[in-house]
């Protein structure tokens, strides 16, 4: 049977129905368009995400999974550091470095905090410089430059070894452990180690007679010689004053005389302090006075 009504699909009418026309116009309005194509999808995405992540267990699970994945990548054997190689350190320092190392081996390269390791190593007193590399094949290479002991400093009760720049290297038990190091005494002497070096350099002609340098009152140096002679140097130009003494010694054999102190503190008026005369001296003196009396 033929249907009485023509179905809509077969009607040959290009015109949109009133409602489809209106619907299209509504959908073309800018606010609604933005809402439908951006606002609602965005709200759905954000909402689902928020609901999903509002559960603490899920958040933990996700972060744990992420962490696992991260660890599985960074802990591949290619990235692991297994050995520490230390170059340029004495055995004692080597031990020390291994002790202070803030990491436990084996460790991943990504977990290494080279800055922290560097800090820990350079905090050690004998270390002057350190360079740290992670080498291929899982080696942490540490190049250390040790401080070279240059002076022995008696500071109050303690005996310290200093390097050329005056930095502390280690404590010494006795003077005998470092017989070749010059001895320096006096509080604050480590700050003025450069002056001490120039003085010692100037004292090379009488190096065998020098017992040590004494920093007096944190302002000037005394040079102490082996036969209890003291050369008191001024605050200013101590080296010049010391060289004058050396010249006097060369020309007039000053230091081999019976003098306990040469006071150079006033440049215009160098002063000598005689030592207590020995018995022989007294004898000589009395003989001479007797001869003069006889005449």
């Amino acid at each position: 049977m033929r249907p009485i009504k023509t179905p809509r699909a077969f009607r040959n009418d290009p015109a949109p129905s009133r409602w489809s026309y209106r619907f299209m116009r509504v959908m073309l309005s800018p606010v609604l368009r933005r809402m439908v194509f951006f606002g609602i999808p965005a709200a759905i995405c954000v909402g689902t995400g928020a609901i999903y992540f509002s559960d603490l267990d899920r958040r933990d699970a996700i972060s744990a999974a992420v962490q696992d994945m991260y660890r599985s990548v960074i802990e591949r054997p290619e990235f692991m550091v297994k050995v520490i190689a230390i170059h340029g350190a004495s055995p004692a320092l080597d031990m020390d470095i291994r002790e202070v190392m803030p990491v436990e081996l084996p460790v991943s390269q990504f977990d290494l905090d080279l800055q922290e390791i560097y800090g820990a190593i350079t905090e050690l007193d004998p270390v002057a410089e350190a360079r740290i590399h992670v080498k291929q094949g899982g080696t942490l290479k540490i190049d250390v430059v040790e401080r070279v002991p240059a002076y022995l400093w008696r500071n109050g009760d303690s005996l310290e070894v200093l390097d050329a720049s005056g930095s502390f290297v280690r404590f010494a038990v006795s003077r005998v452990d470092y017989p070749d190091l010059p001895l320096i005494v006096g509080q604050g002497a480590d700050k003025q180690i450069a002056q001490a070096r120039t003085l010692l350099a100037a004292a090379r002609p009488i190096a065998d007679r020098i017992r040590g340098l004494s920093y007096v009152g944190q302002r000037r140096w005394d040079v102490v010689l082996k036969n209890d002679q003291t050369i008191l140097l001024p605050e200013k130009n101590p080296v010049q004053a010391f060289e004058r003494v050396l010249v006097l010694d060369q020309t007039q054999d000053l230091l081999s005389r019976n003098i306990s102190a040469i006071d150079m503190r006033l440049a215009q008026r160098p002063t000598l302090r005689l030592a207590q005369p020995t018995e022989l001296d007294l004898l000589n003196t009395t003989q001479k006075s007797a001869e003069t009396n006889d005449q």
């Binding site: 009418d13 015109a15 949109p16 299209m24 116009r25 073309l28 309005s29 800018p30």
Partner: peptide, 18 residues
């Protein structure tokens, strides 16, 4: 009215603006 609607709707669709 249908003719106007047809023309307007297809023009609007092309312009993508109301």
């Amino acid at each position: 009215e249908r003719a106007i609607r047809t023309a307007l709707q297809s023009a609007q669709r092309l312009a993508n603006v109301r």
